[in-house]
């Protein structure tokens, strides 16, 4: 069994810390909002579709999406809010494709609801576009086998979890999350890697996601025993 659990390459845990950079760009109606959505940097789209995951982790299953929240709460466009909240973020391999889907959803809504262009947010409730600046730092934690890996996973910060699951896949455009990639290529277990990569991480709190991944790996280890 120990051979199965030993990695060809070690897994180095990184952590991702971020700063929110203000752009000074704001929208108070759907027309302005749509125009700016097309122009702002990808790091803005990333920030507003992922901020909830780290800041409101206990609120899950709150939509991890500032756009949905704003059109619902500030513009009173509940049906558009629901459509934006339902965008299946995990299906989009790049920020570019995610942005296109958001824009398409809003354009379709406006086409079918012409009056929606006339709704304005109250003063102080405008949408402010914010960029995410990521700082990626290697931690001291290195796993050489699956046993190490699961023990370390229990104690790293949720920021580290966040980096390897979300940031690596979407922002850095890797094909899978880092955990699945390492388990498949280094541990050599495609099935276990597949179980983890098939989770929809957007529907968990980060702590629940950690527990779920730890549970999957521990069950796997028990079976191997």
């Amino acid at each position: 069994m120990s051979e199965l659990m030993q990695g060809k390459e070690p897994f180095r845990f990184f952590t991702r810390l971020h700063l929110s950079e203000l752009t000074g760009l704001r929208a108070s109606n759907l027309g302005q909002f749509l125009k700016l959505l097309k122009e702002v940097p990808g790091s803005c789209i990333y920030h507003h579709t992922h901020r909830f995951l780290q800041q409101h982790q206990y609120l899950s299953p709150e939509p991890p999406n500032d756009f949905a929240y704003w059109v619902t709460e500030a513009l009173g466009e509940a049906s558009l809010g629901e459509k934006l909240a339902s965008i299946d973020t995990v299906q989009f391999p790049t920020i570019r494709s995610l942005r296109e889907e958001i824009i398409k959803t809003i354009e379709n809504h406006i086409k079918n609801n012409l009056l929606s262009r006339l709704r304005f947010a109250s003063e102080g409730e405008e949408f402010h576009f914010i960029k995410s600046v990521s700082f990626i730092v290697p931690t001291k934690y290195i796993a050489y086998n699956l046993l190490d890996f699961v023990e370390i996973l229990k104690k790293v910060t949720i920021d580290s979890m966040y980096f390897h699951i979300f940031e690596a896949r979407l922002r850095l455009e890797r094909t899978s999350n880092d955990f699945s990639y390492w388990i498949e290529t280094s541990i050599g277990d495609k099935a276990l890697a597949g179980v983890i990569s098939h989770l929809d991480p957007y529907t968990y709190t980060l702590e629940d996601l950690r527990k779920t991944v730890v549970g999957i790996i521990e069950e796997y280890l028990r079976d191997k025993n």
Binding site: L17, L19, Q57, Y58, S132, V133, S134
Partner: peptide, 28 residues
Amino acid sequence: NNFLLTRHLREYMLLFLSTYHKEDVVYL
């Protein structure tokens, strides 16, 4: 989750580091 001193310390240190970096993804 969001407003304790430890988060503030982290962001101030990142702010100081940001003055030496222009990119949106910074590898330290």
